[in-house]
C-alpha cells in the first residue's frame, strides 16, 4: 500500500492580498510555489517572507496550512473517489475534496493537497478512507 501512503506536513507560507495588477507583475522568491487563490490574493508555499508588491498590500506569514503529499496514483484515486471536479493536468486547482475546501498542486512526481490546519484532521481521516 506504499503507493497510497499519505505524508502530512506543516508548511511555511506567506499569503498576500494586493491589487490584481500588482500580483500579476510581482516576482516571488525562487523557492516559492505560487498559488493564485483569487485575482487579488496569492499563497506562496515554502517561503518565510516576501516583499510587498504594492504599498497597501497585506503580506502575512501564514502558518495555518497543512500539506498532504501523495503519489500521482493516490492523487488520482482521491479525485476519483472524493471530488466532483477533475484535477488539473498540471499546477493549481481548488475546490471541495471529500467535502473540505482544498487546493491541489499537480507536480510531475507527486501531488500536494493543501488544506487549512483547522480541518486537517478531518481531511486526513477522509483521505485514508478513500484510499483504503
Amino acid at each position: 500500500m506504499a503507493e497510497f501512503a499519505v505524508v502530512r506536513e506543516r508548511i511555511a507560507a506567506v499569503r498576500i492580498a494586493a491589487t490584481p495588477t500588482a500580483l500579476d507583475a510581482a516576482r516571488w522568491p525562487a523557492d516559492a510555489t505560487e498559488l493564485r487563490l483569487a485575482p487579488d490574493e496569492v499563497l506562496l508555499l515554502d517561503v518565510l517572507d516576501a516583499a510587498a508588491p504594492e504599498p497597501h498590500a497585506i503580506v502575512f506569514p501564514d502558518t495555518g496550512w497543512v500539506r498532504f503529499v501523495l503519489s500521482p496514483a493516490a492523487g488520482t484515486r482521491v479525485f476519483e473517489g472524493a471530488a466532483t471536479w477533475p484535477p488539473p493536468a498540471h499546477g493549481l486547482g481548488q475546490g471541495a475534496i471529500a467535502g473540505i475546501p482544498a487546493k491541489v498542486i499537480v507536480n510531475t512526481d507527486c501531488w500536494w493537497l493543501v488544506v487549512q490546519g483547522v480541518l486537517a484532521d478531518d481531511f486526513e481521516d477522509r483521505l485514508v478512507e478513500v484510499l483504503a
Binding site: 492580498a17 494586493a18 497597501h56 495555518g64 487549512q116
Partner: peptide, 12 residues
Amino acid sequence: LNVRWMNVTMAL
C-alpha cells in the same frame, strides 16, 4: 473601493 481584505481566521 480601493481596499484589500484578508481573512486570517484560520491562520491565527
